[in-house]
Computed example of a mutant assay.
Amino acid sequence: MIKVQGLSKLYGDVKAVDNITFECRPGAVTGFLGPNGAGKTTTMRVIAGLTPATSGEATVAGVHYHDVPNPGTQVGVLLDASAQHAGRTGREVLTLGAIAMGLPLSRVDEMLALVSLSKAESKRRIRNYSLGMRQRLGIAHALLGDPKILILDEPVNGLDPAGIHWMRGLLREYANRGGTVLLSSHLLHEIEVIADDIIVIGHGRIISQGTKAEMLQTAGTFVKAGDASALTNALTAAGITAVPSGDGGLRTEAKPEEVGRITAEARIALIELRPADGAGLEEMFLELTAETQRDENTPEGVKV
């Protein structure tokens, strides 16, 4: 389990992370979402013991990361696939990791096979790897010690569709075996497909969190008209707030019969009127983060 309690991180006078609290449970993939500069990477760095917290704490399996004995065998971390020694080969990186963790060297070949890096590719210098190959190597290193917890920042970045599908299956199987996964990604569809729980952060604060089913559940009405502008104006005039949804439609919290009455009185021809389905992740994300899409207060040069 990963547990974050009252965590804050300041860079000078700027709060990159502001008093956040959440948990990632065993047997589940937790999607960690937020706009650029929202605080995702800073939070993950604090959990992984790379950045000290200003206040609050983050623990893995009940202890701080730096107190975990032989941490690579307990917590697998991938925060930047490019942060690997460019002059070493993929095999050398995994071999050094296995030696440091006291693992049998047979584990190196097992991980190379797991992430589909061939014998020839494993002997190439990392400077000659594509981003997708570096991601596969980073995942291999994170899984090298057979940890119970994975912390992954944008792990599918640079992967082709087949690689994304492979990653999805790998993480699903890992969670099904009881592992804890904290996963950030800007590919919202991938989070929607694989995540069990979702945490949304903006301006360093938790905006919303819960199971995927809870987060995507919605009520209200979906309505679509040939004249979208007239529809919006009629609803607004009636004091009903509506947000874009789907292909040219609107979603509102009002009941279908109320929306139907208003549009009938305004003589607006409707294409569709029905109870709203569960909102998609992209729609939910954009609504929740509408006011946090830009973080202009982030200090220059600081990745949060």
Rank of each mutant, 00 (worst) to 15 (best):
280 G>A: 14
248 G>I: 10
249 G>D: 02
190 E>N: 03
260 G>C: 08
91 R>C: 03
255 K>F: 09
62 G>F: 10
144 L>W: 02
1 M>D: 01
140 A>Q: 05
288 L>E: 03
282 E>A: 15
134 R>M: 01
289 T>M: 08
165 H>R: 13
111 M>R: 03
76 G>E: 00
179 G>V: 06
25 R>N: 08
241 T>A: 15
236 T>S: 12
61 A>C: 14
299 P>E: 09
85 H>E: 05
211 T>S: 13
18 D>V: 09
202 G>P: 00
200 V>H: 02
61 A>V: 14
201 I>A: 01
257 E>T: 14
22 F>H: 00
19 N>G: 11
141 H>V: 01
113 A>D: 13
91 R>M: 07
63 V>G: 04
77 V>Y: 07
21 T>E: 06
132 G>I: 05
91 R>S: 06
176 N>C: 08
185 S>H: 12
279 A>Y: 01
149 I>G: 01
258 E>W: 02
300 E>G: 06
217 Q>S: 15
187 L>Y: 05
20 I>E: 01
119 K>C: 08
205 R>Q: 11
294 R>G: 09
73 T>D: 02
244 P>R: 08
212 K>E: 06
52 P>A: 15
236 T>A: 14
61 A>G: 12
222 F>W: 12
49 G>W: 04
5 Q>G: 06
224 K>N: 09
106 S>I: 10
109 D>V: 11
133 M>F: 06
188 L>K: 04
